[in-house]
């Protein structure tokens, strides 16, 4: 049985084969092309999901509420559902090209406006949490791998696994219950905070503590486990023996040789896992009523605001796709094995 080299977590990332002299431009264009295909798929899927799948959309909007035939017909007309499918699709595409995602059924404002308004809190939360989680994960993962089997390794891996096994929203609820009163439980700022920048910033930071901690706790574990296993893969590499033979100290071997090599697959994974971060953000924002895209998605879901839901889904998925294309390009820059000579 021992012949199998089980691909560990980092096998999810396929290190592109070394390309000798392949054009960077060509590579970038391929990646962008791939991204565009994915984007197109998302757009089509966004359209189809709410029109073709079983279950009448309008009926599902009224689920649990009384609906007269007139009301339903009116809703149908408003969503353009009475037209033929291809016309609806062309209509949808045309409006999408103009940044028009339709009108929110509940808020009675254009979906685009609503999404733009909610975009920045999410970017702030996800950005800060990702940065912290990546830093923490890489640091802990490196230390764990280097001292494999030590008490530090066992404890930090155990903690990471436990946090990873925990539903995000539950952790958030626990934090809320445990710190009751210390931190705000909802929103971005208090309404009575003075409008000057410093007070506002401090208040936002105050509001951000719990959501950030929650999100970090759930996502750093991935990075730690991936960094640990990808460094372990490098541990037996011959070039580390070379480095030791040169007379380098243990920490120099690690810092100069092992970590830079192990980092590359990890970096790609950070981006591949953005989708997971988004999932964490949806529930975290829900628990802490953080006014971002995640909460907007939840609200749209709760009140069956289909245009809004479709909008948030397309935007969230699209954002992740774009980030991944960027990551692929970044990878090209970082890894000389992939980079053109």
């Amino acid at each position: 049985m021992s012949d199998i080299i089980t691909p560990t977590e980092d096998a999810l990332v396929e290190v592109p084969p070394p390309a000798r002299g392949g054009g960077t431009l060509r590579y970038v264009l391929t990646k962008i092309g791939g991204g565009l295909v994915s984007l197109a798929l998302v757009i089509v899927l966004g359209f189809l999901l709410f029109r073709v799948l079983p279950g009448d959309v309008v009926q599902s909007m009224f689920r649990g509420r009384p609906a007269t035939p007139e009301l339903m017909a009116e809703a149908e007309a408003r969503l353009g559902l009475n037209k033929p499918l291809y016309e609806q699709f062309l209509d949808y595409l045309w409006r999408l090209l103009h940044g028009d995602l339709g009108e929110s059924y509940v808020f009675n404002v254009p979906v685009t406006d609503k999404i733009l308004e909610r975009l920045w809190p999410t970017v702030l939360l996800v950005g800060v949490a990702t940065l912290i989680a990546v830093g923490l994960g890489l640091w802990l993962g490196t230390r764990s791998a280097w001292r494999r089997g030590s008490r530090f390794d066992r404890i930090s891996t155990g903690v990471a696994l436990t946090l990873w096994s925990t539903p995000t929203f539950w952790l958030g609820m626990l934090l809320l219950a445990a710190t009751s009163g210390l931190f705000p439980t909802a929103g971005l700022v208090y309404s009575d905070t003075p409008p000057d920048f410093l007070s506002q910033a401090l208040d936002v930071a105050h509001h951000m503590v719990l959501p950030t901690v929650t999100l970090v706790a759930v996502i750093y574990a991935q990075y730690q486990l991936v960094m640990r296993s990808s460094l372990l893969e490098e541990m037996d590499a011959d070039y580390l023996t070379t480095a030791r033979a040169k007379g380098l100290r243990d920490d120099q071997v690690r810092r100069r040789h092992a970590v830079p090599n192990a980092l590359l697959p990890t970096v790609t994974l950070v981006f591949l896992h953005l989708g997971m971060v988004i999932a964490g953000a949806v529930t975290t924002e829900t628990v802490f009523s953080w006014p971002g895209l995640g909460l907007l998605t939840y609200d749209a879901l709760r009140v069956r605001d289909l245009p809004l839901l479709q909008g948030t889904i397309v935007v969230l998925a699209g954002a992740v796709i774009i980030m991944n294309v960027l990551a692929d390009v970044l990878y090209r820059v970082l890894d000389p094995r992939v980079r053109a000579s």
């Binding site: 999901l49 989708g275 988004i278 998605t297 839901l309 889904i313 998925a317 796709i321």
Partner: peptide, 12 residues
């Protein structure tokens, strides 16, 4: 793999 599976699952 890339698009958030939760988002997709929500849609479904």
């Amino acid at each position: 793999l890339v698009i958030p599976s939760l988002v997709l699952a929500i849609a479904l």
